[in-house]
Design a protein around this nucleic acid. Sequence first.
DNA 1: TTAGAGGTTCCCCCTGCTGGAAGGTCAAGA
DNA 2: TCTTGACCTTCCAGCAGGGGGAACCTCTAA
Lengths: 131, 131
Amino acid sequence: MNIGEASQQSSLPPKTIRYYEDIALVKPARAENGYRDYSTEDVHRLRFLQRARSLGFTIVECRLLLSLYEDDHRASADVKAIAEDKITEIDRKIDHLQSLRLTLVALAQNCEGDDKPECPIIDDLAGVRDQ
Amino acid sequence: MNIGEASQQSSLPPKTIRYYEDIALVKPARAENGYRDYSTEDVHRLRFLQRARSLGFTIVECRLLLSLYEDDHRASADVKAIAEDKITEIDRKIDHLQSLRLTLVALAQNCEGDDKPECPIIDDLAGVRDQ
DNA sequence: TTAGAGGTTCCCCCTGCTGGAAGGTCAAGA
DNA sequence: TCTTGACCTTCCAGCAGGGGGAACCTCTAA
């Protein structure tokens, strides 16, 4: 099938699919006319990539997951380790965002939010210690 | 002062400081020898940028905050609005990450994590509906 | 005089695509 | 038969926010 249908079946934009070929994540055949020709196998890989990316895995991780996906002798422990690493990473990101949030909320609460220039948010950014 | 000292006083790498000049966030003077020459004003701006970036503001937002910082007739409401938008954005990011986390934890919990190939994580990525 | 620690510009690299230009191909309708 | 328009191709450039490194200049101290 052409890239348009592969796109619909994988929920990935054609541009992204071409990019994935560029970085050797999928290797579709070529038709006589030079068009890419996707097999159902190829579409499975694309759908796999779409789902993995949407779960937050990087391209490097997707490459690894894809190789495990296609390895009949894989150990599920290897897959689980990747997932747990990702969970740890997500936890760190959440912690970081929550800490940013706390700071911003504290600053915003102290700001009158009126038409006067006095502003503890600006003061904080400027490094003013007092107030 | 030279870029090295400006770097120390602002906690920003020299590369970043040069980049900020490139995108016109700071405009240091030049000494006779061609070296950048930072005033204390410039260093204040750099410190402001360092703090704002560390709180998660984008370069575009920093540019806006910087102009408010230097506007004696600013309305604190404008600053507060930017901060509140950022909080909303952080909330969305946290929500997204927590939803990813939930999915990944559920998948990881169902995975034996042994040396056998059966793996619900891979099955999910592959779009296998039935477990 | 010479070493080494600074400074300068320039260009490429990263992630993960996205947009656009310039052109080839195919199926359907007038 | 011609044309239109949808689809396909390749290539090039760009986003954020810098980082790495080359090739070169300048200053200071021994």
